[in-house]
Design a protein around this nucleic acid. Structure first.
Length: 486
RNA sequence: GGCAUCGUGGCCGAGUGGCUAGGCACAGCUCUGCAAAAGCUUGUACAGCGGUUCGAAUCCGCUCGAUGCCUCCA
């Protein structure tokens, strides 16, 4: 029985999909006006893991994650400028050049992190017509008004017969009480109202024709248009970063309820933020890291480069609803733990099975599922994986044994959780996996053994130390010497 | 200022009204020519102050602090 923490109710709820065996999931994707933010990666990674687990359980999942390539305003005021258009103006590029450049960056980073591609990755600009249709609908229902070629959602009107603020726990009256005075020339009736369609000023490059004149859609609308188009008026899961809860997701609910009278989403899921050295990431203070800067080591914050798998493992060690703090020490610790896990996986392959098992693999497997079924508790899953690591090492040293059947079950289970669900990759294995390197190292190991047998420790240590410098670590064990590549 | 989430041992991080999280680091031991790796052993922590309770770190209140949103920043 799978339980999910639903942000809408504030409780863990038993997950029941609308259609048995099928899941519709929408996650708000990036606005492609700059390199993808590391915190953003964490959010997407959490949902990648969730997507993977659903698939692992055998669900047919339609996972929609959009690309925002228009409509995300720099601010919601009268002079609101589209983020893409602004960047294009600053860099003297065509807006679509900006979109293309950062979409490519986004995909390449996600690929390094071993993300599964979503089922559909729609763009806002590809769904202008759908957005216009929804605006027409909302206007007809009386929850929006047109003024000077722009259309705004009438939050006050909507709140009369719906609950605006139910997701974020806000009350409209409180919001009004806490709002600063309107800028003098604001055309909105109330500061809480938000744009469904913005009139394009003559100099504005990104523009589309509409019944209200040339303009562009509001940011909140695209997600409503694309999610309902591909997943239906009501669908199972809507996810995104905690920062999107208000106003973005709140507005999505309002738009959907205004146009078709029904709550659009059964389970709202929000991934929590990533901090850096205990503080929020912000370019302005220098407390900021790009994913690429972690992989290359080219940054002033970390002592060395870390592989995407290590970063992924680090993130999977925290629950997706907790704030996670990234630091050099934390990554160093994760790197060691990650290698220990990967080494154990390697050892498992060559383990000799015995008559009986000292390790109850079946109940261990159940505990792994219990952890994941409890709101995707990946840190608990990882704790269980390390329990298996202990047993694997004990079996290797002959202190415990495992039956043929249990060994096969353990191998299948652990690799499906590590690789399929958590999405980790054993990079060192694939690099060391080239047979030639392996046989060269085996040769060196053999030569070192001969030197050691002859008590020629100068030679044996030279082999060991020089290989270590190349990142190849020799490990002497009871059954001989093995190696790992870092 | 308002709303929200949270505050756990040296570090990162789970969890929970009474029973071992886990990883990393540290120390001792085993193994080793010496190391490394691996294994074993050791840590009584839960922001502070009150309250509820037979019993709270876990529930309630207040205080302090962090993060998010309310305002451009994921």
């Amino acid at each position: 029985m799978l339980k999910i923490y639903n942000s809408l109710s504030g409780k863990k709820e038993v997950f029941t999909p609308l259609n048995e065996g099928h899941i519709g999931m929408y996650v708000c994707g990036p606005t492609v006006y700059s390199n993808v933010h590391l915190g953003n990666c964490r959010t997407f990674m959490s949902f990648d893991m969730i997507f993977r687990y659903f698939k692992h359980l055998g669900y047919k999942v339609r996972y929609v994650r959009n690309i925002t390539d228009a409509g995300h305003l720099v601010d919601d005021a009268e002079d609101g400028e589209d983020k893409i258009a602004k960047k294009a103006r600053l860099e003297k590029l065509e807006p679509m050049e900006v979109v293309q450049r950062y979409t490519v960056d986004f995909h390449s980073i996600l690929q390094k992190f071993n993300f599964l591609p979503p089922s559909i990755e729609p763009t806002a600009t590809g769904h202008i017509i759908e957005q216009i249709e929804i605006i027409k609908d909302i206007l007809e229902k009386g929850y929006a008004y047109e003024i000077n070629g722009s259309v705004y959602f009438d939050v006050t009107k909507f709140n009369e017969d719906h609950a605006y603020g139910k997701l974020s726990g806000r009350k409209l009256e409180d919001m009004i009480a806490n709002t600063r005075e309107l800028t003098a020339q604001d055309e909105k009736k109330s500061p809480q109202d938000f744009a469904l369609w913005k009139k394009a000023e003559p100099q504005h490059i990104m523009r589309w024709p509409s019944p209200w004149g040339d303009g562009f859609p509001g940011w909140h609308l695209e997600c409503t248009a694309m999610s309902t188009k591909y997943l239906g008026d009501t669908f199972d899961i809507h996810g995104g970063g905690m920062d999107l809860k208000f106003p973005h997701h709140e507005c999505e609910i309002a738009q959907a309820e205004a146009s078709n009278g029904r709550s659009p989403v059964n389970y709202w899921m929000h991934a929590n933020m990533l901090t850096l050295n205990g503080k929020k990431m912000a370019k302005s203070t220098g407390n900021s890291l790009l994913p690429g800067e972690i992989f290359s080591g080219d940054n002033a914050i970390l002592s060395k480069a870390f592989s995407p798998s290590v970063v992924r493992f680090f993130m999977m060690q925290a629950h997706y609803t907790s704030i996670l703090d990234l630091s050099n020490d934390a990554l160093l610790a994760s790197e060691k733990g990650f290698h220990r896990l990967m080494d154990a996986l390697q050892i498992l392959k060559s383990l000799e099975s015995g008559k009986n098992s000292d390790f109850d693999v079946t109940s261990w497997k159940q505990k792994c599922y219990d952890a994941m079924n409890d709101d995707f508790n990946s840190p608990i899953l990882i704790a269980h994986l390390f329990e298996a690591v202990k047993h694997i090492n004990a079996i290797k040293e002959g202190r415990e044994s495992i039956s043929e059947a249990d060994k096969a079950l353990l191998e299948a289970t652990i690799s499906s959780f590590v690789f399929d669900v958590l999405g980790l990759e054993n990079k060192s294995e694939s690099e060391a996996g080239t047979d030639k390197l392996a046989s060269v190292v085996e040769l060196l190991i053999q030569m070192r053994k001969e030197a050691r047998d002859n008590k020629d420790f100068a030679t044996s240590d030279k082999i060991r130390d020089q290989l270590a410098e190349m990142g190849i670590q020799l490990k002497d064990g009871k059954e001989g010497t093995t190696f790992s590549v870092s």
